[in-house]
Design a binder for these strands. Structure first.
Length: 828
RNA sequence: GCCGAAGUGGCGGAAUUGGCAGACGCGCUGGUCUCAAACACCAGUGGCCGCAAGGCUGUGUGGGUUCGACUCCCACCUUCGGCACCA
């Protein structure tokens, strides 16, 4: 029986069923084999997956299957990051409860994952919106609360007017909401925070342990943490005993401080301007600044504006009296909200000083040519030699940073300090579809955490989450958490005094859900505890984590933080969650990221129906190096499809036995060597950078060689071996067709139980090699050299070569360079 | 502005302890098979000159190091990603 195309539909259904029955992806908790935890970032259950999402699961599946073949005890679980805004927003419009739509979406996506042939240990499935999961998310909150790492404060927070909720700093992109792009406003609200800033230094230090993370992700985290070292200097206010500390990283420029600037929100501003003239204008200025949008406040391009306070401060190193200003470009959240300005050596200060006619003095000279404060066009921010800074004149400014810091600490006018850009993690959300924060407010006892034994705090299912509180479909979200109106939820008893009390109505940011899920997979059904220390200590850190680079900061930083907290509380015995990270590139279509709103998504369902899952997998893997973005092209599918059919015919149909006489050009290939070379190449790609595209080309080359072989009607053991190797090497990539071919060639057990082949180094050695001969670096001819020929012999052969003689015109070359196994170059 | 990655045929991409640029695939051209097509198979395919043999040229641009540079160094251009008044 030989059909035109291979019957992928039958084959894929057959093997998907068999793997499930056999439990190919079931992790064995008692196996003596070495563990391998292969994790893909769990998806948010949106309506359906497209081929861009597919890349993530296909890569993960290839890795898991490969490790199974390498006889590891593999854990490849899957779950759902199921809380979140989109489901709630959809509910406001459609009236369908988020739980209903989410669980429906999960069903669809699960089907899609199966259709791709992606294998998971479904017995360990987790769903973050179900009480048996979020009970433990609440437990995590309580642990942080216990440690003083969860706290409530009234703070200026990022508010998205369209989503009607606050956002974490990490969720504000270019001054807009990362989800809906609406311009973010600042609001003062009572909110819950996680004190991630306590872990700034450790999050930074341990980045250096993560050698198997992409460099760029480590860099992004490093920049986000934003550590900088400097000195906090005390400036005394003139005619007062009040001290105004300010932070600088450039203490070497202290003698050039021309004025000082405060943020408009600085707490001392009010006292300072009180009764010192011009008060009205100053207050107006401050109000104007506070009204500026978030985008303008943080943009480096916004024009710098300021106003003089009529007050002065004293520079402690030279007792100079310098003016005190208020300006829009100083941030209250960083440092002390007060900045010393050195116009000659800071761009911002330079612009500001020019605008308002403030003095400029050079205190660090350019070694390449003296600076003149009167003529300079821009600030000189490089290092240089100290001037006008008695007693530090003449020394390099880099040294001066240390010397002046020492001096200040000795004199007690300043102290070394380290600052971070990282801010605390705002976790409150004024929305319904999230895990309730397990906190109770009692008039008598104040803020009380819910007792652990009373978890979970159930999210009420009957809820009205529209603005009017009436129908569920008037299209507008509430301005407060919809939980506010759920009386049976809100009204409760105080855990301490048993008196009447109310519950916190905000829910947690979904990033809290996803910052610990990788622990839950090890005991997804445990009703007594979130995870078992012994088991997670055995299985974590995750050996290979795979996901999109868009999570480089948010999810990956939060997870690292939560793991460190749990470690400190001795709940777990490891400090980092993910040993190895692979961030795959996006698949784009027509130059843009695939998205429903752009209408450029490619659905896998149709393609799988037309070509089969293996073809879709093959093309997705062949499209390019997986860490890079790639352009999807439906045509490319044809090539993958053709190849799989070509492979199929190797075992399905006896290739035509037309005997041919090998021509000189088309000599019978050394199949054994090619086979071993391919094993080497594919194994290296699997173990190394995951360059599946080159692994697949190598296999294609081998198949091409096999075909050349069959043209001559030769079917010897070398041939049989090569076909067997092709099937095994293809198995992780295109598992269904590989299994079927494996069975057809007489194997009874699954190809995933087969031994991954090793290669024979001796088989890689060639009898003879073709060496290019260069003359002055240009290839002029090629010679056939038996392997093992000495350099001298090669030289002789080359010098006798007629083509070479034509070019050298018989003259002896100046130099002959023989590169072993590579080429020969003659210099004439 | 700062930090990072990248730039190679018509297209996706391959090749770096410096050593045959364009593997593999898509597309295209010609052929075999067929009544015809589909499928498959064979041959060709960076550009320019040439009937051919062969030659010249070619990895974003301009320099440099080297017997030899996609690969290393210097300067620049472009694209993408991150950060962005952090003192």
């Amino acid at each position: 029986m030989s059909e035109q195309f291979y019957p992928f539909k039958q084959i894929e259904a057959k093997w998907q069923k068999k793997w499930e029955k056999k439990g190919l992806f079931k992790m064995d908790p008692v196996s003596p084999k070495e563990k391998y935890y292969c994790l893909m970032m769990f998806p948010y259950p949106s309506s359906a997956l497209h081929v861009g999402h597919g890349r993530n699961y296909i890569i993960g599946d290839v890795v898991a299957r490969y490790k199974i073949m390498r006889k590891f005890n593999v854990l490849a679980p899957m779950g759902w990051d199921a809380f979140g805004l989109p489901a709630e927003n959809a509910a406001i419009k459609s009236g369908i409860h988020p739980k209903t739509s989410t669980l429906n979406n999960i069903k669809t996506m699960k089907k899609q994952l199966n259709a791709w042939g992606a294998g998971y240990d479904w017995g360990r499935e987790i769903t973050s919106c179900l009480p048996d999961y979020y009970k433990w998310t609440q437990w995590i909150f309580l642990q942080l609360y216990k440690k003083g790492l969860a706290y409530k404060k009234k703070a200026a927070v990022n508010w998205c007017p369209s989503c009607q909720t606050v956002l974490a700093n990490e969720q504000v992109v270019d001054g807009g909401c990362e989800r809906c792009s609406a311009e973010v406003e600042q609001r003062k609200l009572e909110q819950w925070f996680f004190k991630i800033t306590d872990y700034s230094q450790r999050l930074l230090d341990d980045l250096f342990l993560l050698k198997d993370w992409p460099e760029r992700v480590r860099l992004m985290q490093k920049n986000w943490i934003g550590r900088s070292e400097g000195v906090e200097i005390d400036f005394k206010i003139a005619d007062s005993d009040v001290v105004l500390p300010c932070f600088t990283t450039r203490v070497d420029t202290i003698y050039g401080a021309a004025y000082m600037v405060l943020a408009a929100e600085h707490p001392m501003v009010d006292d300072l301007i009180n009764g010192h003239g011009n008060e009205k204008d100053i207050r107006k200025f401050i109000n104007d600044v506070k009204k500026e949008s978030v985008i303008d406040r943080v943009s480096a391009t916004t024009e710098k504006k300021g106003i003089f306070t009529n007050r002065y401060v004293i520079n402690p190193v030279n007792n100079r009296k310098i003016p005190l200003w208020i300006a829009n470009y100083v941030l209250m959240e960083y440092g002390t909200g007060a900045v010393m300005a050195v116009p000659a050596h800071d761009e911002r200060d330079f612009d500001f000083a020019k605008k308002y006619g403030l003095s400029i003095e050079v205190v660090i000279d350019n070694p390449k040519g003296s600076l003149d404060a009167k003529t300079m066009k821009e600030a000189y921010i490089e290092e240089g030699v100290m001037v006008n800074s008695h007693p530090f004149n003449g020394i390099p400014s880099l040294d001066a940073i240390e010397k002046i810091a020492d001096y200040m600490e000795k004199e007690g006018i300043g102290r070394r300090k380290t600052h971070y850009k990282l801010r605390d993690w705002l976790i409150s959300r004024q929305r319904y579809w999230g895990a309730p924060i397990p906190i109770i407010y009692c008039d008598k006892c104040g803020i009380q955490p819910v007792d652990e034994k009373d978890l979970p705090v159930l999210l009420p299912e009957k809820i009205k989450f529209s603005a009017k509180g009436g129908s569920a479909s008037d299209g507008k979200p509430c301005t407060e958490s919809p939980l506010k109106h759920a009386k049976s939820f809100v009204n409760t008893k105080c855990p301490k005094c048993k008196g009447r009390a109310t519950r916190e109505i905000d829910t947690m940011d979904t990033f809290v859900d996803s910052s610990w899920y990788f622990l839950r997979y090890l005991s997804p059904k445990d009703k007594k505890k979130p995870f078992d220390k012994k088991v997670v200590d055995k299985w974590l850190p995750v050996d290979q984590y795979i996901g999109g680079v868009e999570h480089a900061i948010l999810h990956l930083m939060y997870s690292r933080f939560i793991v460190k907290v749990l470690y400190d509380m001795n709940h777990i015995g490891f400090k980092e969650p993910f040993a190895k990270l692979f961030t795959q590139g996006m698949i784009v279509k027509d130059g843009a990221k695939m998205s429903k709103s752009k209408g450029n998504t490619v659905s896998p369902d149709k393609l799988i129906n037309k070509y089969g899952a293996d073809t879709v997998r093959f093309y997705t893997l062949f499209i390019g190096p997986p860490e890079k973005d790639a352009e999807w092209n439906d045509r490319g599918m044809e090539g993958a499809w053709r190849f799989l059919n070509r492979v199929w015919r190797l075992v399905d149909r006896r290739p035509s036995s037309v005997s041919r006489i090998p021509s000189a050009k088309n000599k019978i290939p050394p199949l054994k060597r090619k086979t071993h070379f391919t094993i080497k190449k594919v194994t290296e790609d699997m173990e190394g950078a995951f360059h599946f595209n080159t692994a697949l080309s190598a296999i294609m080359e081998l198949v091409n060689e096999i075909y050349k072989f069959t043209e001559y009607g030769i079917r010897n053991t070398e041939y049989g071996k090569a076909v067997e190797i092709v099937i095994i090497l293809l198995a992780p990539f295109v598992p269904h067709i590989a299994e079927e071919m494996w069975e057809k060639t007489g194997n009874e057990r699954s190809v995933f139980e087969a031994e991954w082949p090793g290669y024979d180094k001796d088989a890689l050695v060639e009898d003879s090699i073709t060496m290019p001969v260069q003359i002055n670096g240009k290839v002029r001819t090629k010679i056939e050299i038996a392997s093992g020929t000495t350099d001298d012999e090669i030289k002789n052969i080359v010098l006798r070569n007629p083509v070479v003689n034509k070019w050298t015109q018989g003259k002896p070359p100046k130099k002959v360079i023989v590169v072993k196994g590579r080429l020969v170059n003659l210099v004439v």
